[in-house]
Amino acid sequence: MKRLLPAWLWLMPFALVFVAFQMAPLGWIAVSAFQVEGSWGLGHFQEIATSPFFRQAIWRSLEISLVSSLLGLIIAVLACHSLTRTSGPLRRWMIAFTNMTSNFAGVPLAFAFIILMGANGVLTLALQRVGLIDDFSLYSRTGLIVIYTWFQIPLGMLLLFPAFAGLRADWRDAASLLGAGRVAYWCHIGLPVLRPALAGTFTILIANAMGAYATVYALVNTSYNLMTIRIANLVSGDLFLQPNLASALALILVGLLAMVTLIQQWLLRRSHHVAER
């Protein structure tokens, strides 16, 4: 390559595209969020902080993300634990199936849930007939939590299974030889070993839910108030376009995601210190 052109020149096309279509949009958001009618200011953040409508969007995003991540994590933990105790063929088959369902996301997922649990959905009608539910709406908070939890389960399982597979059987045997029961084993060995994986997975699930847009948009269009829905509506809605306000809200979303990651890192570091002592 030496004879043709200076080597670093081969990096330029990539750098150009990456800067123009990934970094520059982020830079534009970071700048325009602080631009109020041509001058610098925190006006957009003030507007968001004082508006009940935007505060509701932030609160609901956090609520749905936390609840669905927690439910998804619990189900994924139970499933992974049981998977380590099942036979090899069933385990491999189930992991392949989980991988398959993790590809099922976005708009198709919303449509599948409308078929299953919409107003005239197969499951809705069946459960109504049995008398288990009387008024379930897929387009409500409960409905969204159900669908979010559904797409968190396969992701959680795929991220957690390697950690569960790393729990060695001889640790359990050693613990039980020393007189530890099942509870003591999990308190002193199982959970401490799994803790980094659990914390990391929980963070990824929260980020996944906070940034989710396609499923909820296909399901409720703009009628459920969430951060991603508001951001999109401010730049591509039918009424007033307020790109600078959208930037401020987008920056708050990125800030919240960064905060979740930092808290997780901090907790992880603290647990290492405890372990070292």
């Binding site: 949009p25 958001i29 951001i231 930037s247 979303l253 995601l257």
Partner: peptide, 10 residues
């Protein structure tokens, strides 16, 4: 790390 909605604003 950046949600697509955020990038598309910019």
């Amino acid at each position: 790390a950046v949600p697509p909605v955020v990038s598309s604003v910019g």
